[in-house]
Design a protein around this nucleic acid. Sequence first.
DNA 1: ACGAGATCCTGTCAGC
DNA 2: TGCTGACAGGATCTCG
Length: 282
Amino acid sequence: MPELPEVETIVRTLAPRVLGKRIAAWETLQPGVPEAGAELLPLLRNMRITRVFRRAKLLLICLSADYVKNGVNDLILAFHFKMTGRFFIHPKGTAPLKHTRLILDMDDGGRLFFDDARKFGYCRVMRPNDLKDWPFFASLGPEPLELSPEELAGHLAARFDKRGVSVKAALLDQTIIAGIGNIYADESLFAAGLAPHRPAGTVNGEKLLALARAVQETLLRSIRECGSSIRDYRDALGNAGAFQNSFQVYGRKGERCPVCKRPLRAARIAGRGTVYCPRCQQ
DNA sequence: ACGAGATCCTGTCAGC
DNA sequence: TGCTGACAGGATCTCG
């Protein structure tokens, strides 16, 4: 399930392979793809990929035309991978896979596949102004790695204040902080020694700073290890990540806490499977 | 206004 | 062996 570190890894493996390339052709293989901007797809032909970047869990690809066509000079492709979305670079001539939803052919013959078995993911074709007007994009909270620990703690303090919702639900709320999903919420809460069901509004002071540091360190460590591969995730070149080998609690229900050796407990919090240590996390 | 729960989807796995 | 049901979860929607 690509979260911030996984999407970041896809960007890092994708960018050097596609920057400067032109789109030679495009092909959609399922209805509803893209979910927005289908009428802009024909304009992609001959556009050059000028930038590949990440915002929250979104992969964004910027393209520019050599001249204005139909009043459009620049387009942005936005991909959200949700649970099982993938983004691959395949060699020339590769046939669509079972779950391929969109193919972009580049002028060097490389084929970009957007695959998604569970169909939760989506892509959108947008003009630059469409991106700004997209409510989901506009509502996203700050990037956790673009703030200092103190700034992040201060931001969380303001957003957690008087909130009765669990601290885990607050971490998953993309309008509070962008890019965290179930894996990194559980791992960060364990690292910070915070119980996931604790009301967000009761977390403050040193605990909040510890949480900010835990979020940043967990995300950075995962990025260094090219993300977590549970079952579906791969980077743009098909490689698995390694951070799943460093999980302290996620997916380890019933196993022993790495710190106090007592059994880890599972619960359903914020509608998500949650694993934590009832002794180490208060 | 806020929070909880249902919903979308399909591959995988446990249990019988 | 083959079937059934539970489960995975990001974001959105509905309901209380």
